[in-house]
Design a protein around this nucleic acid. Sequence first.
DNA 1: AATACATGTAATCATAATTGTTACAGATAC
DNA 2: GTATCTGTAACAATTATGATTACATGTATT
Lengths: 144, 144
Amino acid sequence: MSISSRFAVGIHILTLIEFNKEGVTSSEFLASSVNTNPAVIRKLMGMLKKAGLIEVNPGIAGAKLAKELSDITLFDVYKAVNVVQEKELFSIHETPHPNCPVGRNIQNTIEPIFTAAQLAMEKVLRNVTLEDVVKDIATKENIC
Amino acid sequence: MSISSRFAVGIHILTLIEFNKEGVTSSEFLASSVNTNPAVIRKLMGMLKKAGLIEVNPGIAGAKLAKELSDITLFDVYKAVNVVQEKELFSIHETPHPNCPVGRNIQNTIEPIFTAAQLAMEKVLRNVTLEDVVKDIATKENIC
DNA sequence: AATACATGTAATCATAATTGTTACAGATAC
DNA sequence: GTATCTGTAACAATTATGATTACATGTATT
């Protein structure tokens, strides 16, 4: 099991909008860089727009960032593209048998541990911004 | 997307083996508590056995723990039941376009961040043992 | 040996999520 | 009005999950 690549593609989209900020960043342009279908990109753009991360309008070509680079964390993107729900990174079997001491308690015992693990993962994402990503790529391209 | 309930069920199995340590813990008995099919349990028992967490033998009813409770972490169970591969909690789109500065760098830039997030999650699992789980349930049952 | 019962394992199925594809409606600019 | 873009829905291919059935294999008991 893996978390959907919508997350990675969402980061790609936002990063490329920044790199191409002087130009027009259409869904087709983005799709070419990501190597996927423009409709896939437009669906993701809709999610990013709904989350207030980009500005994009019907009929008008190109998307723009709606916030400062340093003000968008990877956690924001992660939430925007809806890859993992709150407290649902781990799934727990639904109906264990209530006549068994383990069966009737396992869910309540495990749930806070799973939630803590999920939060620890998400904390890492909160501590990385798009600015970090853009700068890292700029460094790799020697254009810093 | 959620991580397979094999993980939660694996914890359930090991915990119930401990609670029933005076008796015979067969796949049918476990299946009844988990509320699933015995064949599902036997498949998981095979994984737990392969990881050295339980002892179980063909033809002989019942499974036993192969280690001390305090010596089995939830991370051990997580690895045993094979729910998430190393560095693969997050998936990254495979073939971005190499002619684009973002396309040719995004994978290498994102991968260490994703790995760090996965490791943070797994660290929480490493710090919880089956003993913790068993004691928590015992407390809830007022049999501590 | 024969029987009963357990584990080990493969095949199959229903369901759900993901990703890509096509198509088209609606909005904008020229 | 035409061209171009976004927004969105419908559909298909692929994959993972979890349940189910069936049966081979191993052990204990009689």
